[in-house]
Design a protein around this nucleic acid. Structure first.
Length: 672
RNA sequence: GGCGGAGUAGCUCAGUGGUCAGAGCAUGCGGUUCAUACCCGCAGUGUCGGGGGUUCGAAUCCCUCCUCCGCCA
């Protein structure tokens, strides 16, 4: 009763395909924030869900020979399983196909019509069916959709429009009075300069080009488009306009949202369209919209059409949820783009989780077993550097709290790891084993107590980020969840009761073999990317659907997660231009043990190509080899060396052989 | 083309007027052994994108140019 509320949301994801690591990133970040607020005593509502209508899903379902409903049920099940594996602590999961949502959306639409914010008009425009988007003649230059390049068609029909323009002054005022509304702030300038200042056009909020949606009240030929349908989930999930008073009470209780966490590609929808809809409904606006960055791969964005989307399940099954959550929250400053590479992942896990945290635990517990009878000792002989360690522990709690308020997850984790580093150094400085030899067992016990305390405090602070390790650390320290594991107790050094029996156990985070793990991840995600060919994956492009995290997966009808097994048409294959070439030069690239720089004679030109085959071929053995070269790959730089193409090779396990041509044929000949 | 952001050690980045510009990783050397070949210490390296200006003093403010990125057109 009377607890402060905290309402946090992710975008609702578009289940036309399975999700990728970018969506996981958004959801993990929101989860860390939700967990943090719960630990601080807030009454938290954490909402996520799925945006299930639209043409794309209708079409995907048809392709699969399923009803749209069955199709989305499958994928939503998959998504919920993914969130379970990632330990996402959502309080509610809204699906836009649920009656609670559909009913409320129709009421919202009706109300906006009744008060004249939505009106009906004839509309004539160029329409791209796959993208569900209208374009102006100038945008659709040459009759092609600027997004996907496919032909647009002239459509003339009655549609429903939302009068956006009249709310612009109020919205600008809201921005001004709430400088924290849009985070990071640079996005705010983009919104103001690109959209609000030039004036907003009325927004088309219905479609007739598909049926899989919520019908416009009283006009079933039209379905309500995503702007009203999907965005409203943030209030329909709380029971807005519900018939059930218990549900409606939730809305009064939690609205307005404290923060909508979104990917940067959908900031616009959440900071312009959505607030305007809310203003029209006479509702308070969300306090904050945080547009975080994208998870990129070394050469660019993720995309299914590029064949190398990273399936979070693969990483989860191999390393566990704590590891993946840690990597996502630590590696990338929230708000900035970040790069996913297998090396970065494994190194984070090794350096931070295994070496610093895991090893600290694994040094402390055996020492307690050996020199303190296996029980948390009593600190009786305090001397420096104990005070410094205590001071730093206290300071760390404050720093974590400050960082979390700003949603700076990586900063919070960095602070925790500074404390862990200090503790590792503390063991060396105090050398408890030497104290025991010198007959000062009481000093050794005091040191060990301090170490155990740092571990207790650290484990408490880690709870928003890691969901399994903290409880395991408590178990090994002999602690049960309770007063000694509360957030507030982290600020009180000396809370750990002496006498608890400790348990050493196996290493918490096993050290991983970098080479082996990188190889395994590469194989599972398609190793082409590592040879500098093409972006491994991308987080996607802005989509009309509030599709999320790293972006909307609904472009690209590709297979996605199980890369490489889908069937493609001949026209797709013909996009790849492959030629016969001969390697005329080959040399190693300094500081890159996998890469070779090759010069390849293609008849008409000599190309520089960087290839990740240094482990399999010595440069001198390659000279003169005839190879098949993909020549129309986008150039990329690898270790600063430009690569303009890719050579083909067959690989299995730790073997790799070049693809060559069986007889003499002129250089530059096309391979088909 | 318009608006915005960024360019700092090999890599990722912190640092918005004032001690010799910092951290982590990587590199080299040394130490230690309680521990997951781990941990601890020491050591470097930088024309702080180029040029010009303001100032006693600038990575930090202003102008200009270059490069990259984002949003828009």
């Amino acid at each position: 009763m009377g607890r402060k509320t905290f309402y946090i949301t992710t975008p609702i994801y578009y289940p036309s395909n399975k999700l990728h690591i970018g969506h996981a990133y958004t959801t993990v970040a929101a989860d860390a924030m939700a967990r943090y607020k719960r630990l601080r005593g807030f009454d938290v509502m954490y909402l996520t869900g799925t945006d299930e209508h639209g043409q794309k899903i209708e079409r995907r379902a048809r392709e699969e020979g399923m009803t749209p409903r069955a199709f989305v049920d499958d994928i939503v099940g998959w998504i919920q399983e993914l969130w379970r594996k990632l330990d996402i602590s959502y309080d509610d999961f809204i699906r836009t196909t649920e009656p609670r949502h559909k009913n409320a959306v129709q009421r919202i639409f009706q109300r906006l019509m009744d008060q004249g914010d939505i009106y009906q008009a004839d509309y004539e425009g160029l329409y791209c069916t796959p993208c569900e988007s209208f374009w102006t003649a100038r945008q659709a230059e040459g009759g092609r959709c600027p997004d996907c390049g496919r032909p647009v068609e002239l459509v003339r029909e009655k549609s429903y429009f939302f009068r956006m323009g009249k709310y612009v002054p109020k919205l600008l005022q809201y921005y001004e009075e709430n400088p924290e509304f849009i985070q990071p702030e640079s996005r705010k300038h983009e919104m103001i300069n690109n959209f609000l200042k030039p004036g907003l056009e009325d927004l088309c909020v219905s479609r007739t080009t598909f049926d899989w949606g919520i019908p416009v009240p009283g006009d079933p030929d039209h379905v309500i488009y995503v702007w009203i349908d999907a965005l409203s989930n943030y209030i329909t999930a709380l029971g807005y306009l519900s018939d059930d008073p218990v549900q409606r009470e939730k809305f009064e209780h939690y609205w307005p949202a404290d923060v909508h966490v979104v990917g940067k590609e959908i900031v616009r929808f959440h900071t312009i369209y959505w607030p305007i809809v809310l203003m029209a409904l006479g509702l308070p606006l969300p306090k904050k919209v945080f547009g975080h960055g994208w998870l990129l791969t070394p050469q660019g964005k993720m995309s299914k059409s590029k064949g190398n989307v990273i399936d979070p399940n693969l990483l989860l099954d191999r390393y566990g949820s704590d590891a993946i959550r840690y990597f996502l929250l630590r590696e990338i400053p929230f708000g900035a783009d970040g790069v996913f590479t297998p090396e970065a992942l494994i190194q984070r896990l090794n350096f931070d989780l295994a070496n610093d945290l895991g090893n600290l635990l694994n040094r402390t517990l055996p020492l307690i077993e050996r020199y303190a009878g296996g029980r948390i000792p009593t600190p009786t002989r305090i001397q420096e550097p104990d005070g410094e360690l205590r001071g730093m522990a206290a300071e760390t709690v404050t720093r974590v709290e400050e960082a979390m308020e700003k949603m700076e997850f990586s900063t919070a984790l960095a602070a925790i790891w500074q404390l862990l580093g200090r503790a590792n150094k503390y063991i060396d400085e105090t050398a408890p084993w030497a104290e025991v030899k010198a007959g000062r067992g009481d000093r050794a016990e005091t040191v060990l107590y301090h170490l155990a305390e740092v571990l207790r405090i650290t484990s408490i602070l880690l709870q928003p980020f890691l969901t399994k390790a903290p409880a395991e650390i408590w178990r090994r320290l002999g602690l049960s969840p309770g007063p000694h594991t509360s957030w507030d107790s982290a600020g009180m050094f000396g809370t750990l009761p002496p006498g608890l029996p400790v348990y050493k156990g196996d290493p918490l985070f096993p050290r991983l073999d970098l080479e082996a793990e990188v190889l395994a991840i590469d194989e599972a995600t398609g190793a082409v990317s590592r040879q500098g060919a093409e972006p491994v994956s991308e987080t996607g492009e802005a989509s009309p659907h509030s599709g999320g995290a790293a972006g909307a997966p609904e472009n690209d009808a590709g297979a996605g997660c199980a890369a490489g097994t889908e069937l493609i048409g001949i026209e797709e294959f013909q996009k790849i231009d492959m030629r016969v070439g001969r390697i005329v030069e080959a040399e190693r690239i300094p500081k890159a043990d996998k890469l070779l720089k090759l010069m390849i004679d293609l008849g008409s030109e000599v190309r520089q190509v960087v290839s990740g085959i240094a482990k399999y071929y010595a440069p001198e053995d390659l000279i003169g080899q005839r190879v098949v070269v993909v020549v129309n790959l986008k150039p990329v730089k690898l270790r600063g060396v430009e690569s303009r193409g890719m050579i083909l090779a067959a690989s299995e396990g730790d073997r790799l052989v070049l693809t060559t041509v069986s007889d003499d044929i002129p250089l530059g000949t096309k391979v088909k």
